[in-house]
């Protein structure tokens, strides 16, 4: 037991050691270029120069890099390149490094990256190994709020040596969101994003990514809560919340959304009666969680719900 704990401690201390070795072993680069210390979720990482070979292990990091005009060399794309294309609205050249859940470390290492961007919840456990490959920063995408996502863009920009550009990207984004918000007519409609799976509903609350987008453009979220998602709920809960606007996120294939159409309880929901139910893509509304997605959701709300172009 003691052995276990001490070895674990060693393991915990190792990244700091590895980074120290790394910085010492690169004296030539260090004298020519500046060195920055990036503070992230799992500590601090020293980055030298301007990384250009970057591996991104979450969708939102890919979009953040894209907004900074950088194409990552490797992406954990779940082996579904069409998702990356959907996320960015264009095709980019990169190598897949496997799934976000268990990215393939061998493939990451042969890309010889100079920066790895990882997610705290998904990749916290392999932080040490990632750090052994390249300087790694760990951000919060999976559990992150809209503000976290914005902050992540600035942190990533700082890591690649152009913090000002990251701040500019966020400022531009804020301006666009403010413009959309200004076009939205005054209303007291209650909005909800509900993910329809094969057998049940997951309701996104005010604490979710979509909830904070709604707040940013000045519309109400129907469900106020501190947890971002209420999972595994039945139709009755949806009827009880009774949203005025319902965005139903689905994957291709049959979901419970198809099954409830004839149910008179479903038809009693305000959004259904007002014709304000919209089926939307689950990748874009619930998986990507980035600034482009935020603008897409905001624009959708503006054009679909309020018919403003």
């Amino acid at each position: 037991m003691i052995g276990l704990v001490s070895a674990r401690l060693m393991r915990a201390l190792r990244p700091a050691f590895a980074v120290a070795v790394l910085t010492m072993s690169a004296p030539i680069a260090a004298q020519a270029q500046d060195t920055r210390t990036i503070t992230h979720e799992l500590g601090e990482t020293t980055i030298t120069g301007e990384p250009v070979r970057i591996v991104a292990l979450e969708f939102s990091f890919v979009q953040a890099l894209d907004s900074l005009d950088i194409v990552p060399v490797g992406i954990a794309d779940d082996n579904q390149p069409e998702r990356i294309e959907q996320n960015l609205g264009k095709t980019i050249e990169y190598s897949s490094v496997g799934t976000r859940l268990e990215p393939n470390l061998e493939l990451i290492s042969v890309l010889q990256p100079d920066l790895i961007i990882a997610d705290e919840r998904r990749h916290g456990a392999i932080y040490e190994q990632l750090s052994a490959i390249a300087p790694t920063i760990v951000l919060n995408s999976w559990d992150g709020s809209y503000e976290d996502i914005k902050q992540a863009v600035v942190t990533i920009a700082d890591a690649i040596g152009d913090k000002a550009k990251g701040e500019q990207v966020v400022a531009d984004h804020n301006a666009r969101m403010a413009e959309i918000a200004s076009k939205i007519p005054a209303n007291d409609k209650r909005f909800m994003l509900a993910v329809a799976t094969a057998d049940n509903w997951s309701l996104h609350t005010s604490a979710s990514f979509s909830g904070s987008i709604f707040a940013a453009i000045g519309v109400k979220t129907a469900l106020e809560a501190s947890e971002p998602v209420e999972s595994g709920v039945g139709l009755e809960r949806l009827v009880a919340i009774n949203p005025d606007v319902l965005l139903v996120a689905t994957d291709p294939g049959g979901t419970i959304f198809n099954q409830v159409q004839d149910n008179s309880a479903w038809q009693a929901i305000s959004a259904v009666q007002n014709g304000l139910v919209f089926e939307v893509n689950r990748n874009q509304y619930a998986r990507f969680r980035d600034l482009r997605t935020a603008e897409l959701i905001a624009n959708d709300v503006l054009s679909k719900v309020f018919n403003v172009q």
Binding site: M10, R121, R122, S231
Partner: peptide, 26 residues
């Protein structure tokens, strides 16, 4: 607590993914 389901499922299935030298020592 559905947020950790994916990680929990993989962990419950059992995998050597991410093993390190420190793990060997322990």
């Amino acid at each position: 607590y559905p947020r950790g389901i994916d990680q929990s499922m993989v962990w419950l299935a059992g995998s050597t993914y991410g093993s390190t030298v420190a793990d060997i020592i322990s």
